[in-house]
Write a protein that binds this DNA or RNA. Structure first.
Lengths: 229, 229
DNA sequence: GGATTTCTTTACTTGTCAGTTAAGTTTTCA
DNA sequence: TGAAAACTTAACTGACAAGTAAAGAAATCC
């Protein structure tokens, strides 16, 4: 079963640990603020060993960033078919839970802060982060349009509207205030309101869908209370 | 008239130049990446002189950031009364032109990138940037609600929706991709669509207002063509 | 115009950090 | 078990950057 020798396994495991450490250190300190000793310490190995795995600070940074990017590709397989409103509510929460995760927020801050010195990285993340996410939303919305439940001309704009309505506010706030991340209740407030506005503007049966949304929100918050109790 | 001596004038002028230089250098390089020699060079003075004005790199950074923040307080006195739709369109463009200005985007990137090491600054900007902007929008929207032209329960959410609809997409993109800033046409696409959705969801006379919006957009784009020609 | 303040130049100290070297220790594999 | 590979320790180099010191040059004020 183990096609890999112990040595190769160690190598892989060490590289993983280095990249993990690099993410942590770079996220906290920024590229210039971070130092390789801190990365080595965090990864529990010595600096010379670190340099056997990556030839330079910049190489480590790039490898780490591209690795993280590739991990993002895996996220967001879309569920569906419990009805449009339920679907929208469900993946609104999925998006919120991902996009507001502290580690991903740190990474986003790092990218934004370094993008002027590493423009490729900005582009790379635009592609797999926002663009990919948008593509997913678009696909879903277009499906609903074909089914006659939504009406719009431009799917890209509709998807961006949905995103902007549900997550722009809490995410912007979270980016600027790392210590004060929004509570579940605050997120719920944004999501519920955002979906309401979206359905009002885009649904072919706004009344029905808004009622359904209200019902689901009620159920969900009951759920929450039960959970919390 | 000159209550200030030449010396005092020079001092003030120099300080202004230092802060300006600091903004440029820190924006481009980040806090850790920037160095004081570069600031001195950019401000056309020597490093010892620089240190007579600010005791340390960190002091300079803070002073610069807080100074920039105070300048933002001046922006955004709200015009109005050419009709709600015209008003909304006008200050959408005002917001866009401000928020997408390259220097302010650089500053935003700097804040976001350094917020984990300077949390006070994140909070300070949240207050005068997003929060103040939001307050302005809220005031306007509440006025229109009193006048019976808009309907909503929560003014804060309504204001955030407007913001999210018109500017979240181009701004996020601009943050991630400094070299590829959106064209006027792209901005127009976001603004026009965003306002359309906003009016659909919040106007008490959606049809009338949407027609008015369409009319204004047509007029505006004609204007643009004339301007460009 | 001469004294005073302020700025400049140049050079320095001190600390930090990327990246390296060399000698010794541990792990792995055969 | 013994040789080879990989890792560790510890010290080092070279560069760069924060901050300072001292002596001279220039602007400013009276």
């Amino acid at each position: 079963m183990t096609a890999l020798s112990r040595r190769q396994q160690n190598k892989i495991e060490r590289e993983r640990r280095i990249l993990e450490a690099a993410l942590k250190v770079f996220s906290e300190m920024g590229y210039s603020g971070a130092n390789m000793d801190a990365v080595a310490l965090e990864a529990n190995l010595s600096k010379p060993t670190l340099y056997q795995y990556f030839q330079s600070k910049e190489a480590l940074f790039s490898a780490m960033m591209l690795g993280e990017r590739d991990q993002m590709l895996a996220v967001f397989e879309h569920p569906s078919d419990r009805g449009m409103v339920a679907d929208l509510l469900e993946f609104s929460w999925d998006y919120a839970d991902t996009v507001l995760r502290p580690d991903l927020l740190s990474l986003a801050r790092l990218i934004i802060g370094e993008v002027q010195r590493f423009p490729e990285i900005g582009r790379a993340y635009q592609e797999v982060g926002p663009d990919r996410l948008l593509r997913g939303i678009m696909d879903y919305l277009q499906g609903q349009r074909r089914g006659g439940r939504l009406a719009f001309d431009d799917a890209e704009l509709a998807a961006q509207d949905l995103w902007g309505l549900i997550l722009s506010a809490p995410r912007t706030q979270a980016l600027y205030m790392p210590d004060h991340s929004p509570s579940r209740a605050e997120i719920a407030r944004y999501l519920n309101n955002g979906l309401k506005v979206f359905l009002k503007a885009y649904s072919t049966q706004p009344e029905t869908d808004l009622a359904e949304l209200a019902r689901l929100i009620g159920a969900h918050s009951l759920n929450q209370v039960q959970h919390d109790a």
